[in-house]
Design a protein around this nucleic acid. Structure first.
Lengths: 226, 226
DNA sequence: GTCTATATTCGGATAGAC
DNA sequence: GTCTATCCGAATATAGAC
């Protein structure tokens, strides 16, 4: 008769999953090269060679984290770059989605964005995905300037500012505390305030942004924005 | 009779200096641990053991870069946190000075801000300096909110946004091209637009910022801002 | 100030038992 | 799926000649 106390699934975390989580934390703290497989194994609580039962080599751990953080983000950005609606709303929506994705992820993904590791040959496919993501975001910003939504600004400068903001703000998450649920929209508000020719339009931009449909979404988003 | 073609000092770059420059580039690209002393030596054009004639160990190279990028920035931020004048102008000035310092530096200092390496014991004193810098910047922002210069915003969030913006935008520099001379003020404009309750006040904020005197300055600044 | 040669430690990865 | 034992290459650093 009474509803089940909490329908939350009793998450069984596999060793493989624990490896990914601990590795992401270590990579974020000391970099990919600064974290040895021994460090990772110790954090998980297994011996170092046991790692190789779950991943063929160290690179594969990083590559899985790269795919997790880049693939869907790039897809969303490219979808939004070609979607209808105002560029400002589309950029807003991208920021909200991407930020929430990073915020709710069980991994600490800072190392992915930080490091020049992506430039290395062994991670070349993921470097290309990162560039596709950058191109798509820059394109939305370009459109925004063109139609007068955004101030006249160097497109690449603005694109990098967006990246920097995302990166630094997810840094908090790693400190352990849960970030407030409104953080994604607050972050988007902040960025758009700097870009909009008329900052007072933020309200309507946010409303339009949250109404955008058809995103190739990572997960089932119950509510679009807030 | 004719003036000397270019009074530019014929810069004699010592091996030690070349080591610092090449190391900073490698650290930025592949991280501190990802760059071996062999890599550094090869970039400089000497054999690996020759490095140890100039620096007692690898750490010392990184430590010198840390001091270069943190010491003066922290001093300026702390000075400005306690100075008179509007908080908005003081934050603006900090951004201009810090950005220009990073922009004109012969080193690629991204690794310093990126990495969690600073958290390691071996670099503890520099980690403390970084925290002092953060506290000072957060304090200026707090003052700005208090007097109504800035919108109501989480102080730490704003402080991190500032860091992220600086970091990402100096990334360009490393791509080789000289950044335009107006970039420091454009960056400060951008950040202040997001923070100011009244973005239209940027003009007067910039004017006041450039008039601030008494900074514990890194180098002889001929002109204050532009 | 730079070199060659080398000591030593550490990191990634494999073999094979349980 | 995890363990112990181990190989091999790479990395930091030292010794000592030129």
């Amino acid at each position: 008769m009474t509803a089940p106390t909490t329908p939350q699934v009793e998450e069984t975390i596999t060793t493989r999953e624990r490896i990914l989580r601990e590795a992401s934390t270590l990579f974020a703290a000391r970099g990919y090269y600064g974290s040895s497989t021994r460090d990772i194994a110790a954090a998980v609580g297994i011996q170092q060679p046991s790692l190789f039962h779950h991943f063929p080599h160290k690179q594969a751990i990083f590559q899985e984290l790269l795919s997790y953080s880049l693939d869907d983000s790039a897809a969303v950005a490219e979808y939004l770059a070609g979607a209808s609606g105002s560029p400002a709303a589309r950029l807003y929506r991208f920021l909200v989605e991407d930020f929430r994705y990073l915020m709710e992820s069980p991994y600490d993904l800072r190392s992915i964005f930080n490091s020049g590791v992506l430039e290395g040959e062994e991670f070349e496919p993921w470097g290309r995905t990162a560039r596709r993501l950058h191109v798509a975001v820059a394109e939305i910003i370009r459109q925004g300037i063109e139609v007068g939504d955004f101030i006249e600004i160097d497109v690449n400068f603005a694109r990098q500012a967006v990246s920097g903001l995302m990166l630094e703000t997810i840094r908090e998450r790693s400190l352990g505390e849960k970030l407030p649920a409104q953080r994604p929209t607050r972050t988007a508000d902040f960025m758009l305030r700097a870009l909009l020719t008329d900052p007072d339009r933020i309200g309507e931009v946010a409303t339009e942004a949250c109404a955008i449909e058809g995103l190739p979404l990572y997960r089932d988003t119950t509510t679009a924005c807030d």
